[in-house]
Amino acid sequence: MNIFRLLGDMCHLVAIIILFLKIWRSKSCAGISGKSQVLFALVFTTRYLDLFTSFISVYNTVMKVVFLVLAYATVYLIYLRFRSTYNSESDSFRVEFLLVPVAGLSFLENYAFAPLEILWTFSIYLESVAILPQLFMITKTGEAESITTHYLFFLGLYRALYLANWVWRYHTEGFFDQIAVVSGVVQTIFYCDFFYLYFTKVLRGSGKMTLP
């Protein structure tokens, strides 16, 4: 554990809590991609199956359980509790175009051809593209509420901090997880355009982020 990793995990947690509370308090999931949230629930489910097979630390176990619970609770709010507020017509990203290549790649490029290992690899690849339906939705509607942009900011910051964590771990422990690092770099790149808009529009102005 290092400071980048801990801060990264905290940003990840903050992002998930921001989204959950936004939907819970406003009783609305307008502007939120349910598809991205289902993908994240799938990411956590396929990655954290090792909860049953290996114990790493109390921190690790608690965080995994919290992420899983919050991910499914968010999906529940969007698709069941506040379903009437869900903008399904704007959430039109075709997730099969992500799932099929990601599933295929996880069979081809993995550390070991074992069920849990392939599912872990699948989760890493899927996480790198899971936010795309949300970014697509914002591009399509041309705007995002500021609270939604704060959610995306913390999610992007989490990714950036994990990159710093890997640089740190490489130099201090010789640790290098190629699959995670390559996917992590790809994932962080997706946030660059958003970061630019966030700093130039949301933080300088107020209210919604509107696209040019």
């Binding site: 990793r5 995994k64 550390y111 070991a112 074992a114 994990y162 997880d177 995670a180």
Partner: peptide, 10 residues
Amino acid sequence: AEGAGLHDEL
């Protein structure tokens, strides 16, 4: 490369 086995990151 670290490979298969324990994945200690979240």
